[in-house]
Computed example of a mutant assay.
Amino acid sequence: MPDPYAASRAAGERIEALYGRPVAELAADAVPGSMRHALLNSFDALQCADRAIIFHAEQLHRLTHPDRAIESADVGHIADASRRLAHAVSVRDSHAQVLGDVLNSLVRVPDVTSPAFAAPQAPAVAPAAPSEPARSR
């Protein structure tokens, strides 16, 4: 089975690279209404969708285990578990797509408070030599 947390793990790594701090640290002081808060909420929704996929896949596996006899009453439960699993995958893919697109549109900017950041200074321009008045004939 492929890594069920691949999408949220990649998004978390991208958020950490963008902000230069672990996600847990970022969440501790996220200000509601900020981009960081929105990203962390989307990341949380993606993680929740990943967990839902695991839950519904395990439930479906339990219902269809080869050692278990499937009775007519189980058919509805199996169909429901399959539908819920498909829905969880769709939700996860939607969250991963949107969060990935937003993260790909953002870039990390240098810290303006660090001493390494210095605004480039324009080179000194020598005053222009006085031009000669135009001669008339």
Results as ranks from 00 to 15, higher is better:
Asp29Ile: 04
Val31Cys: 03
Pro32Ala: 05
Pro32Asp: 06
Arg36Pro: 04
Arg36Asp: 02
Leu39Phe: 04
Asn41Gly: 09
Ser42Glu: 07
Phe43Met: 04
Asp44His: 12
Ala45Ser: 08
Leu46His: 00
Leu46Gln: 00
Asp50Lys: 07
Arg51Ala: 14
Ala52Thr: 08
Ile53Ser: 07
Ile54Ser: 09
His56Asp: 07
Ala57Pro: 01
Ala57Asn: 13
Gln59Gly: 10
Gln59Asn: 14
Leu60Thr: 07
His61Pro: 01
Arg62Thr: 12
Leu63Glu: 06
Pro66Cys: 03
Asp67Asn: 05
Arg68Thr: 05
Ala69Cys: 05
Ser72Leu: 10
Ser72Tyr: 07
Asp74His: 13
Gly76His: 12
Ile78Lys: 11
Asp80Cys: 09
Ser82Thr: 15
Arg83Trp: 03
Arg84Met: 15
Leu85Trp: 10
Leu85His: 14
Leu85Asn: 08
Ala86Arg: 14
Val89Gln: 11
Ser90Thr: 05
Val91Trp: 01
Asp93Met: 01
Asp93Lys: 01
Asp93His: 01
His95Asn: 09
His95Cys: 09
Val98Arg: 12
Val98His: 09
Val98Ala: 05
Val102Asn: 04
Asn104Cys: 02
Asn104Met: 03
Val107Gln: 13
Val107Met: 09
Val107Asn: 10
Val107Phe: 07
Val109Ala: 14
